[in-house]
Simulated assay, not measured.
Amino acid sequence: MTETTRHQQPAVREEILAYYARGKEDARLREGGAPAGRLEFWRTQDVLRRLMPAAPARVLDVGGGSGIHAEWLARDGYEVDLLDPVPLHVEQAARLPGVTARPGDARALPADDASYDVVLLLGPLYHLPERPDRVRALAEAYRVVRPGGLVVAATINRFAGLHDVLREERYFTPLHRRRTDAVTADGRHHHHAEDGLFTVAYFARPEEPPTEFTDAGLTVAGQYGIEGVAWLMGGIEDWLDEPERRAAVLAATRRIESEPTLLGASGHLLTAGRRPS
């Protein structure tokens, strides 16, 4: 049975679509982008390359954006299908060699049961503020991944906004402080049209994704803090521009990536699970 016969396509909030239609997401993670974005990209790549089965394998990149990760996955020899609700992202990803891109929503995947070896959700979960929607997205990943297959999802950590706004000194502005403090209370980041800093999102505590994976039927296999504490340190930009220091930063961050007491220090967290065989 195909999913297109099972669910009506859910609606994505207009604020989220408008935010990503600006076309800035691709540059954020690429060489020359902000240090935190580059560190996020390299560390996500590092973790995924250790978790994924050997190529060739079928990968569904759900909410894959402009194809920033699909691009290197295809170069590594994987067969990559990308889904994203933002038309600009689909257009950008479709230009990449070895990547098939089409519109889609994480909560209603247009894919057959057990048709992929790996399902990646590196963006959708933190744009689904309601827990039932996140579990539904993970249940869809469970459905389309083969038994024994890998599911990896990214979340934004609960205090990432507080760390980021303080590091960039916006926390000293009363308005930004009030908004940031509110997010730390309930995890809900609201859309504020006048600043355009981010859009509707949910910032999760590290213990939340494993319970959502379990509710979706997935067996949790591990959690990985992406940026560690390195993204908060002064000098990170210079370190990442020097190959030897960059390698040292990545190695240090890998050393603490699954340390339970430090999982929440990262800006982003990867949770990995498998569909039971």
Rank of each mutant, 00 (worst) to 15 (best):
Y116S: 06
H191E: 15
H189Q: 15
A230P: 06
Y19A: 02
G23H: 05
G67S: 04
P87D: 02
G37N: 10
V135D: 02
R146F: 02
E14K: 09
E207S: 10
D113C: 10
P174A: 10
Q92I: 04
E140V: 00
L96Q: 03
Y116R: 13
A94F: 04
I68L: 10
D195K: 15
E259V: 13
P243N: 15
A11G: 13
A74F: 04
R6V: 07
N157K: 11
L270K: 02
P147N: 08
L60K: 00
V47T: 08
H192W: 14
E194P: 12
F41T: 13
Y126I: 01
P53D: 11
F172C: 11
P243F: 10
E79P: 14
E257T: 08
A182Y: 12
R158H: 05
R254F: 08
V86H: 00
L166Y: 10
A18H: 09
H7L: 09
G148T: 03
H190P: 14
L83D: 00
A94C: 06
E91Q: 11
S258N: 08
V62T: 00
A93K: 01
A204E: 15
Q92A: 04
F203N: 10
E40H: 15
A204W: 09
P35T: 06
M1N: 02
L150M: 06
R49Y: 08
A21Y: 06
D195V: 12
L269G: 05
E31W: 13
Q45E: 08
L240S: 14
E259P: 09
F203M: 11
D81P: 14
L125Q: 01
A160P: 06
E169T: 15
R246P: 06
P10N: 01
A21S: 08
I236F: 13
G264T: 07
G98Q: 02
L128M: 10
P147D: 09
D215R: 15
V90Y: 01
W231Q: 09
H191Y: 12
R136E: 07
P35G: 07
P56G: 07
A193V: 15
V86L: 00
A21I: 07
I68C: 10
G64H: 01
E194D: 10
R58V: 06
E140G: 01
L162G: 09
R246L: 09
